[in-house]
């Protein structure tokens, strides 16, 4: 476990836990895309199928449980909680899931490490994670500006992806045969998706103005 990966996991943990705590505290999910949260819940469900099948490490198991619990809790809050659900911006969060789920599933059936259920589901979760943020970015685009709830969330997620790329570079040079094309390519695509958001986030932060995303 290298520092980049630990920092990446902690930032990723921070993004979901901070989001859950904020939604729980202010009883609002304004600016948050339920579609993205549902896609992330599917990412974790598809990737952590072997959670109880084979034990990697205590850290690994605990983190998987926390990610599953927090992502499903966020979806529950946004769909079921009597107060929070009223703050959900339904008419703007209209990105259709199937435009993301089906291509990822087809790609996972075509490109995977081994044509077994678990490997296909793993590849599916990797591809899905790469594009799961799209509904959130579209929602931010539509609502034009971004309150700090969604801003911090996307910012932490982007930081986690950038740290993971550093982790892969580090592991590539320090561990023989550490090659994971599927994760690497999907991870780079995912990080690029954040890049333009970062550009606007940092420029608005520097000019100390409300973040205005171009239409």
């Amino acid at each position: 476990m290298n520092l980049f990966r630990l920092a990446g996991d902690m930032t990723h943990l921070l993004s979901v836990v901070v989001l859950l705590l904020k939604i729980h505290t202010i009883k609002s999910c304004a600016g948050i895309s339920l579609k993205t949260q549902e896609l992330y819940a599917i990412v974790f469900a598809a990737r952590y199928l072997d959670l109880f099948v084979h034990f990697m490490s205590l850290y690994n198991t605990i983190m998987k449980l926390v990610f599953l619990a927090s992502s499903f809790s966020i979806v529950w809050y946004m769909r079921q909680h009597k107060i929070v659900r009223r703050t959900y911006d339904k008419e703007h969060d209209t990105f259709r899931h199937q435009f993301i789920l089906l291509p990822c599933l087809v790609l996972a059936l075509l490109i995977n490490e081994k044509f077994t259920f678990r490997e296909v589901m793993w590849a599916f979760s990797i591809y899905l994670e790469a594009v799961a943020i799209l509904p959130q970015l579209v929602l931010l685009q539509r609502t034009r500006n971004i309150d700090n709830l969604a801003g911090h969330y996307v910012f932490f997620l982007g930081a986690y992806r950038a740290l993971y790329i550093l982790n892969w570079i580090y592991r590539y040079f320090t561990e023989p045969h550490f090659v994971h094309w599927i994760s690497w390519i999907a991870g780079i695509v995912q990080t690029l998706l954040y890049a333009d958001f970062f550009y606007y986030y940092i420029t608005s932060w520097k000019n100390n103005v409300k973040l205005e995303l171009p239409a």
Binding site: R5, H54, M56, F67, E113
Partner: peptide
């Protein structure tokens, strides 16, 4: 059987 490549990352 362990997955084809050791998947130790989250």
């Amino acid at each position: 059987d362990a997955p084809s490549t050791k998947k130790d990352e989250l």
